[in-house]
Amino acid sequence: EETGVRVELAEEDDGEKIAIKLWLRIEDIKKLKGKYKDNEAIEFSFDLERDVPEDVAQEMVESGYVCEGDHKTMAKAIKDRVSLIKRK
Rank of each mutant, 00 (worst) to 15 (best):
G4D: 04
G4M: 04
V5E: 04
V5T: 06
R6N: 08
R6L: 07
V7M: 09
V7N: 04
E8R: 03
E8H: 02
E8W: 04
E8C: 04
E11H: 07
E11S: 05
E12W: 03
D13G: 08
D13W: 15
D13N: 09
D14I: 11
D14M: 07
D14R: 06
E16N: 11
I18L: 14
A19H: 13
I20M: 10
I20A: 05
L22R: 07
L22V: 04
L22Y: 04
W23N: 14
W23Y: 14
W23S: 15
L24A: 12
L24C: 07
L24R: 10
L24V: 08
R25N: 10
I26G: 12
I26A: 13
E27P: 08
E27K: 13
D28L: 02
D28Q: 01
D28S: 08
I29W: 11
I29P: 15
K30Q: 12
K30H: 10
K30M: 10
K31M: 10
K31H: 10
K31T: 06
K31F: 06
L32G: 07
L32F: 08
L32A: 06
L32Q: 06
K33W: 03
Y36A: 06
Y36L: 04
Y36F: 04
K37G: 08
D38G: 12
N39L: 05
N39W: 05
E40H: 14
E40D: 11
E40Y: 14
A41Q: 14
A41H: 11
I42N: 02
I42Q: 01
I42C: 02
I42Y: 08
F44M: 04
F44K: 04
S45Y: 14
S45D: 14
F46Y: 14
L48Y: 02
L48W: 00
R50D: 07
R50Y: 08
R50M: 06
D51Q: 03
D51M: 03
V52E: 12
P53N: 01
P53W: 00
P53E: 05
P53L: 01
P53C: 04
E54H: 02
E54D: 11
E54Y: 01
E54Q: 05
D55T: 12
D55L: 13
D55E: 13
D55Q: 13
Q58C: 04
Q58K: 12
Q58N: 09
E59D: 11
M60H: 01
V61K: 02
V61H: 01
V61M: 02
V61I: 11
V61Q: 03
E62K: 14
S63N: 13
S63I: 07
S63T: 10
G64A: 02
Y65W: 11
Y65F: 13
Y65G: 02
Y65K: 15
C67H: 15
C67P: 04
E68K: 10
G69N: 11
G69H: 14
D70A: 05
D70Q: 07
H71F: 14
H71G: 10
H71Y: 13
K72Y: 11
T73C: 08
M74H: 03
A75S: 10
A75I: 06
A75P: 00
K76N: 11
A77C: 07
A77G: 02
A77F: 08
I78Q: 04
I78M: 06
K79V: 02
K79F: 10
K79H: 14
D80T: 05
R81S: 08
R81W: 07
R81F: 12
V82P: 03
V82S: 02
V82R: 00
V82Q: 01
V82H: 01
S83H: 10
L84T: 14
I85L: 12
I85W: 04
K86F: 00
R87N: 11
R87L: 06
